[in-house]
């Protein structure tokens, strides 16, 4: 459904409304808390945005890997949640944060493999397969968390330390915004560029696009549609796993049920916002990151707005994006269609 066809409005009306809304909101906030728009506060907010965007970057790249090969990926949320749990559990077991990170990627990859088997081999409807993963992850992590950790809270685990980049961290403004973060956030700043090169400038990337667009044509050119799809969905799972690791290895050193809190779906919106391109998705992730950082900043600044309402901002933004308001999204043509030849 296209908003323009539904309402007769031009698509840019919506970002414009959003902009005007934020300006109005900003004016009220500026009146209530005059130092809100001082340099340091904005720098702090953008730094938080970059950090909050991290799981969204991994999640949206997970979506790109899967969907560009023609497999619908609505299971980012479930893969992240599973990985967040296993990152925590593995760290409790091994006291090694790097092994924990590996555990998160492995958990994500396994969930990806499960989604791949269901949707590629058994040709289950891919929305249903993704929903199975999402529901399974809630049950699995909730159950294991209750069984293993509920009565055992004094667990000695930690998160990755802040690692300011020498020299660059001392730059005015940028140093704080880009160069004073934890490792997963740094990787998330580089990964979209690497994914861009992968998708548009490597053999694997070209084949991915071909398979997601017209699998029969790719097949006749001698490309194994199934192996590309399997590979991409499993790698996509591992990427979602890195996004999940953010929650328990970078954000807070403990697992809470449902702690991904819809970030997988927001990541999906970021991917759609970016029209299935890594750099576009990156922009989307940063936009949503700002939307998440805003309420935090307001709270720190002691602005008395309804925190609950402002906290809804990322979700409202998601709805607007998913309603197709921001430009025409054109998904890969073969998305959601199982490939089958006799």
């Amino acid at each position: 459904m296209r908003v323009r066809e539904l309402t007769g409005l031009r698509p840019w009306i919506f970002p414009l409304c959003l902009l005007l809304g934020s300006l109005f909101f900003g004016a009220v906030a500026a009146y209530k808390a005059p130092n809100l728009f001082s340099g340091p506060v904005i720098v702090a907010m953008l730094a938080v945005s970059v950090s909050r965007a991290t799981p969204l970057v991994y999640g949206s790249l997970s979506g790109i890997f899967c969907e560009r090969s023609g497999v619908t990926q609505i299971a980012i949320e479930g893969m992240m949640l599973t990985a967040a749990f296993f990152a925590f559990a593995v760290q409790v077991a091994t006291h090694n944060i790097f092994i924990a990170l590996g555990g998160a990627m492995l958990a994500g990859a396994l969930m990806g493999a499960f989604h791949a088997v269901l949707s590629i081999t058994f040709q289950v409807n891919q929305i249903i397969s993704g929903t199975v993963v999402n529901i399974l992850s809630i049950g699995l992590t909730g159950y294991l968390n209750r069984q293993l950790f509920l009565f055992d809270q004094a667990i000695d685990v930690t998160v990755f330390p802040q690692l300011p980049v020498p020299v660059l961290a001392d730059l005015p403004w940028l140093g704080r915004i880009l160069f004073s973060h934890q490792p997963l956030t740094y990787v998330a700043l580089l990964l979209p560029l690497m994914a861009h090169v992968w998708l548009f400038h490597t053999t694997w990337g070209l084949r991915t696009r071909a398979v997601g667009e017209h699998p029969l044509a790719a097949d006749t050119a001698g490309i194994n549609v199934y192996s590309i799809r399997y590979l991409n969905v499993i790698v996509g799972g591992a990427l979602a796993g890195l996004g999940g690791a953010y929650f328990t290895l970078e954000s807070i050193p403990t697992f809470q049920p449902l702690m991904t809190n819809g970030r997988g779906f927001i990541a999906l919106a970021a991917m759609i916002f970016g029209k299935w391109t890594p750099l576009g998705a990156w922009g989307g992730a940063l936009l949503f990151g700002v939307a998440e950082a805003l309420p935090v900043t307001l709270q720190i600044q002691g602005v008395t707005v309804n925190y609950f309402l402002v906290g809804l901002l990322p979700y409202v933004l998601t709805i607007i994006v998913l309603a197709g308001a921001v430009g025409r999204a054109s998904p890969p043509a073969a998305i959601g269609l199982p490939y089958d030849r006799r």
Binding site: L206, R209, H214
Partner: peptide, 26 residues
Amino acid sequence: HFMLIPTLTVAENIILGDERTRGPLL
């Protein structure tokens, strides 16, 4: 019937399946 992919370029369509690379890149 056309076995070509509309969203790819002419060159990408032709090399598909038998790609030439320079280092890791196409």
